[in-house]
Design a protein around this nucleic acid. Structure first.
Lengths: 201, 201
DNA sequence: ATTATCTATAGATCTATAGATAATGC
DNA sequence: ATTATCTATAGATCTATAGATAATGC
């Protein structure tokens, strides 16, 4: 039942990718090793050939996911607008994409911070250290977006943790009521979009 | 081993209070019925005389905790300042208390929204309905604080979901890094405090 | 007599490991 | 021969229930 070395690489990739999706949708605790391995097309017992423990997989998933989230902000900064109004300010463009019903409804392909920050708050320092990099990186890139292409003066002030808080908070709150009151969920997102995109004094 | 009717009432209270503390600190999934009953001074098996299921306990805990969170905002609005600078604007006073290291470090006695909104996002519509009331109530009371005792004109615009997003988001982010980087955690809180207290255009 | 609690356990689940199996790659 | 995977299972845990126990309150 052995496979080629290329297949081993591909299998590891599948484990991480499937774990990332399931963790972001359901949290660390509700996803089992068997769930992840089944989605990756492997058996439960094979997992420990790839990772020492479930915690090690959680760390691998967060490390990659957080880097992707930082890269997503940077992509907007570097003018990878693609479609949409090219005249739209970069900050507003990113905020509108992040604080959206689409993002709310697809946590498995969305931001790791919005999906797993709460779980990180209940995890150990090793995992939290990954969120230090991710949160600092996202807030730093957000500060870069602010002022860019807008009438707003370039602020001095380091990473924009306040705007990140608004955006992440809104996605989390919108998810907390989405199944019971979709209209309220939308109002939360709309209010936060406006606030996060608005100039600061 | 039967107890008086008064004791039954007190026991139920102990179950809810201890569950509220443990759920807010560790989340629904990491707390067992046995944990809660032990903290309440009862045995595991006795739980089902009080609640039909763990989910029913989760709902009872959230219903009470969310009402307390709404009441905490209203208390500031109604001028229950207590200590501190009486001249301080009500909004700032509440924000400074909520977006704080004290609140970050004591989720068990803190806001249910900040502690369990993520878990609610992974729960069913019944639990989410409780968050509909809690979030709407808190955002409505926050809108009342804004403008009160400040130079800011009284806004028309309904519940202040944007400010609530900033506050909840900041507490969640600060908790996600607290064990790894206390200084960063403080910077997040400070940035969000300033943003949430600032006038809006 | 009623009823809240306790003891004991069924049934299910989960992480992690041990040993067998079979295909790769020197 | 090496090694990735699979089968099977140990050991621990968790929700929920059944039946026994013992104190309350009519």
């Amino acid at each position: 039942m052995r496979v080629s070395r290329e297949q081993v690489t591909a299998n590891r990739e599948q484990i991480v990718v499937n774990a990332a999706e399931q963790f972001r949708r359901r949290g660390f605790g509700d996803v089992t090793i068997a769930d992840v391995m089944k989605a990756a097309g492997l058996t439960h017992g094979g997992f420990y050939g790839y990772f020492d423990s479930k915690q090690a997989l959680e760390a691998a998933v967060c490390e990659r996911g957080l880097a992707e989230s930082v890269a997503a902000v940077d992509a907007v900064r570097d003018g990878e607008g693609g479609e949409g109004t090219a005249a739209e300010a970069p900050l507003r463009r990113f905020v509108d994409d992040y604080v959206s019903a689409r993002h709310r409804d697809a946590p498995e392909e969305g931001c790791t911070v919005a999906a797993l920050a709460c779980d990180a708050g209940r995890s150990g320092p090793e995992l939290q250290q990954l969120f230090v990099s991710g949160i600092t990186g996202m807030a730093g890139s957000l500060a870069g977006l602010r002022g860019q292409g807008s009438a707003e003066p370039a602020e001095d002030g380091g990473p924009d943790f306040a705007t990140l808080s608004t955006m992440v908070g809104a996605v989390i709150l919108s998810r907390a009521v989405a199944a019971a009151d979709p209209e309220l969920s939308e109002r939360i997102l709309a209010a936060a979009r406006e606030r996060a995109s608005a100039p600061v004094e």
